[in-house]
């Protein structure tokens, strides 16, 4: 069972590394969006540090949206999605592998570039560690929620904008709790409780979302 999981992850990673721009472009987008804010509202470090959590999280949401298309779209077009559904394993399990691979390709790079953005936006080390932890816990939830949206819209010709309409309202709690945790860290308060809430949402998403994704794929591929 775990064998299949890693085979799917492996296949996804291999495919992605053969077209590297797919991985790099959302990360570039993320960096550019964050860069626009100091240019737009001025370079006062206090102001930047104040808005940094919200800016970084909104940028991460938008970057995630960009990358979702490739989660199922290519597989849907070339028919390998149908093959995946024909495999003698639970579809929910297989899509969790795909979502995990997607997070490795899009969530993890954002974590890697986040120190750079912390410097751009004048965050101190305590605030940054809170940012890192919320991104670590929050981006997998984004991947899972987004995967539901992609699975629902993959069969449609103009699924992209619809995907954002569906997914963005549902990701509001993640945005709220993450920025609250980072704010708390910035004021020197304990933010573990908020992280625990995020963690609870992650656990809930991991257990429930794969079934929703599988059910949606069955609707889209039929």
């Amino acid at each position: 069972m775990f064998n299949v999981f890693f085979q799917v992850v492996n296949k996804e990673l291999k495919g992605a590394f053969r077209s590297q721009s797919d991985i790099l472009n959302p990360v570039w987008f993320f960096i550019i969006v964050v860069t626009l804010f100091p240019l737009g509202i001025g370079t006062d470090p206090a102001l930047l540090a104040r808005i940094a959590p919200g800016v970084i999280w909104v940028a991460a949401l938008l970057a995630a949206l960009l990358s979702f298309e490739r989660l199922f779209k290519d597989d849907f077009i070339d028919g390998s999605l149908e093959q995946l559904m024909l495999m003698p394993h639970s579809l929910a399990w297989l899509v969790s592998a795909k979502v995990f691979a997607h997070w490795l390709l899009t969530g993890l790079p954002i974590l890697f570039v986040s120190p750079l953005l912390a410097i751009f936006l004048a965050m101190d080390i305590n605030t940054y560690s809170a940012l890192f932890l919320t991104l670590l816990i929050g981006t997998p939830i984004l991947s899972l929620l987004g995967a539901i949206g992609v699975a629902l819209t993959v069969g449609l010709r103009k699924g992209g904008i619809l995907l954002s309409l569906i997914m963005l309202p549902l990701s509001i709690p993640i945005l709220i709790f993450s920025t609250l945790a980072i704010d708390a860290a910035a004021y020197g308060q304990s933010y573990l409780g908020l992280l625990a809430l995020l963690g609870a949402m992650l656990v809930g998403a991991i257990t429930l979302a794969p079934f929703a994704i599988a059910a949606s794929l069955r609707v889209s591929v039929s």
Binding site: L152, I166, V219
Partner: peptide
């Protein structure tokens, strides 16, 4: 926003049987 997402999803499918199923999944997620 959630309502509008469901309506938009329902209208996006030309096959209304699929549209109904997709909308019900999204309603439950919501």
């Amino acid at each position: 926003f959630v309502y509008l997402g469901i309506i938009a999803l329902y209208n996006a499918f030309s096959d209304k049987v699929l549209a109904g199923r997709a909308a019900s999944i999204l309603t439950l997620v919501g």
